[in-house]
């Protein structure tokens, strides 16, 4: 077990700056996701921590010790790869045992550790088989078992579920959470899937364009996005951004008025689609509904508010027709206000 300190890591590939100074501290036993769209630098950061890539500048400390310049094997970590990287020419048993064999562990210890890891991941029935005969989900279990068998201080996971189909992904997500909680390993998890990050993480670091935009618990990041990017990236549907005029430090939405952290000009309202309540038109913001989709668990409305595109969610018990205009009242405690110029949110009012 170990904590990790990432200190101002920069990485350039030629003229391209993949990481523009990233700092992050991960506590012992914590599960942190690096969440961001493809090409944002999250995988590069993970590979730098692993030692598979060298940083241009900056420091990585694992358990208080700088690991820059150390070989991957001397960093006390294990890794799970996106395409599993389970060795096809070795049985599942030998795959799980690989790290221990490299450490020259004796057979008794290898057996004990392999059985323990195989038990955690429920792969005992396949230990004698070759990976070729296994499904994607089973191979991924083998990859996780191989990583856990060496009892690493730090576990790195690079999009481990992205090659699985949706149903299996959900199943593995739940199982990973259980297994990793049991193992208590410090984990860094790279993903572009915000539901995975939300569901699994103690904290999420949202990475965008080579920088960390925000670090926080899933609920913090969801409710109080630091930037427009974070609000738009996290949540399904994404946060709505509605530019509204400010007069005398106030924004007016129908009969509702809100004090905002700006005196005049425009401000952007960050509105989570499920935080509104239906009301007669004119009570709050009016939404022109282009398409109403009953999803079973809820009703998804797509249309426009103040002429700007918006998606909101109403309870499944509501009925709305396409082309109808509905009134929506806002919950003042759940609004985010952002600067229209910088896209950065104003600190939540205390």
């Amino acid at each position: 077990m170990a904590n990790i300190v990432i200190d101002n890591i920069k990485k350039s590939f030629g003229a391209f700056q993949a990481l523009k100074g990233v700092s992050l501290t991960i506590n012992d036993g914590e599960f942190v996701s690096l969440l961001g769209p493809s090409g944002c630098g999250k995988t590069t950061l993970l590979r730098i921590i692993a030692g598979l890539e060298t940083s241009t500048s900056g420091d990585v400390r694992i358990g208080e010790k700088s690991v820059i310049g150390l070989l991957p094997k001397d960093r006390g970590l294990a890794m799970v790869f996106q395409n599993y990287a389970v060795f096809p020419h070795m049985t599942v048993y030998e795959n799980v045992a690989f790290g221990l064999r490299m450490q020259k562990a004796d057979d008794a210890r290898v057996k004990k550790q392999v059985e323990k890891a195989a038990g955690l991941l429920h792969i005992e029935p396949y230990l004698d088989r070759y990976p070729n005969k296994l499904s994607g989900g089973q191979r991924q279990r083998v990859a996780v078992a191989r990583a856990l068998a060496v009892e690493p201080g730090v576990l790195l996971m690079d999009e481990p579920l992205s090659n699985l189909d949706a149903l299996l992904r959900l199943e593995m997500r739940t199982e990973l959470k259980t297994v990793l909680q049991e193992a208590g390993t410090t984990t860094i998890y790279v993903t572009h899937d915000q539901t995975e990050a939300m569901g699994l993480s103690d904290r999420i670091a949202v990475v965008h364009d080579g920088r960390i935009e925000q670090v926080g618990t899933p609920v913090e990041v969801y409710n109080n996005p630091a930037t427009r990017f974070v609000g738009g990236f996290i949540g399904n549907p994404p946060m709505n951004f509605i530019t509204m005029p400010v007069t005398g430090g106030q924004v007016t939405a129908g009969a509702q008025q809100f004090a905002v952290p700006a005196q005049g000009g425009d401000i952007v309202l960050g509105l989570r689609g499920e935080t509104v309540e239906r009301a007669p038109t004119g009570h709050g913001l009016d939404m022109h509904v282009r398409v109403a989709e009953p999803m079973g668990s809820h009703l998804l409305l797509t249309g426009s508010i103040l002429g700007q595109p918006a998606r909101v969610i109403l309870p499944a018990t509501e009925t709305v027709k396409n082309g109808e205009t509905v009134g929506l009242t806002l919950d003042p405690r759940r609004l985010t206000w952002l600067s229209p110029e910088s896209g950065v949110s104003y600190p939540a009012a205390a």
């Binding site: 598979l52 991957p72 094997k73 060795f87 790290g99 490299m102």
Partner: peptide, 11 residues
Amino acid sequence: EFKEAAEIFGA
């Protein structure tokens, strides 16, 4: 990835 995985695990 096969070589990288082997490298991570100390080969």
